[in-house]
Design a protein around this nucleic acid. Sequence first.
DNA 1: TATCTTTGTAAGTGAGCGCTCACATTTAGA
DNA 2: TCTAAATGTGAGCGCTCACTTACAAAGATA
Lengths: 196, 196
Amino acid sequence: MKRLNTETRQILIKQAVQEILSTEGMSKLSIKNIALKVGVTEGAIYRHFNSKREILMSIINDMCDNLVVKQQEVANSDLGPSEKLFTFFSKQINYLILNKGITILLFSQAVHANDSNLKEKFLKVLLSQKTLLKQIIEEGVSQGIWSNQINIDDFTIFYMGIPTILNFELVLNKENFNHEEFGTRMFVLLKRILNP
Amino acid sequence: MKRLNTETRQILIKQAVQEILSTEGMSKLSIKNIALKVGVTEGAIYRHFNSKREILMSIINDMCDNLVVKQQEVANSDLGPSEKLFTFFSKQINYLILNKGITILLFSQAVHANDSNLKEKFLKVLLSQKTLLKQIIEEGVSQGIWSNQINIDDFTIFYMGIPTILNFELVLNKENFNHEEFGTRMFVLLKRILNP
DNA sequence: TATCTTTGTAAGTGAGCGCTCACATTTAGA
DNA sequence: TCTAAATGTGAGCGCTCACTTACAAAGATA
């Protein structure tokens, strides 16, 4: 068996986790299954992570670093609200398509995680995305670009449903699902809500 | 221990399942947990259902009889498209609020059920709702009530995200969540997409 | 080459899972 | 009142779970 250093192995383990999540679901996410997918035995997994919980925590931390922080930068940039929203949304869709399993993880754990620390962390990610989005929409409404008739909280709630349906379509349509277009097509609908 | 006949006990078991699903999630849905919530022992559960799978199947059959069939009637009624959509949507929201656990069950099992028969049944329910909705929207668009610019498939995909966010808001806000208003508020956003 | 840290293996732990079964008790009908 | 069916109990089945441990061997450093 070829040996790899911890950093490399950790990445492979996290990739395996996301692959299992997107194809088989949370109930099949066992250490044995992860090890099988990585090509090592169960014990080897525990050389690189102290617990299953720690693997999930690492995945969500990656999402913070590679997505949420970037979205934060977009929200606070000097772009116009319309461009901000498009970039914010695109980054999210691209990340979810590249990391297919993460939506299942995010929603199931944020709502019903056994571990309360894990639950709080997952919730924090979802809520911070919601807050950033709200900030962008408020800016657009106050500038008169978007309608002041809409309830901004309702819009953000509505928006948060998109990751789930993306995941749903990804799993169901698998092969013939058009990744690239999904974002732009959904964006059209979002703009129809916002436009005066 | 008070004894109850099978019909009564089956209802209590299904209620317990939905309660566990909405408060603790799929991972805590064990026969032991169900029995505990019902107030009997594990063995008693198997007097009224042959398997855990059969309990879930019965819950989804109830949803067919009490919701999907009603939605079908609405879609095929002689109401106008706008009234059809409102009634169709209201029935769904009310059912999901009354049966809080069912969204988790529906989406998690339709996507990743271990049992393929179960999976197909769950998928069928989701897809038949999607088809009925599409039928209503097509009618409205062809009558010129709604914009012919929108992609109807995209709209139905978008619509299917609502059950998940409803569930999300229900769990997170628990007490201070306004059940009655949620439907009408979301309906406002849906209409903004559809309106010419 | 010798040594030591790092990585992987294989067998095992106790706990919980869905489910079964021998047995007890209630309930309904003759 | 007697009997048989229906309902509930509690121990226990084989299995998988997350995780541990004793041991082996690869790779780096000297």
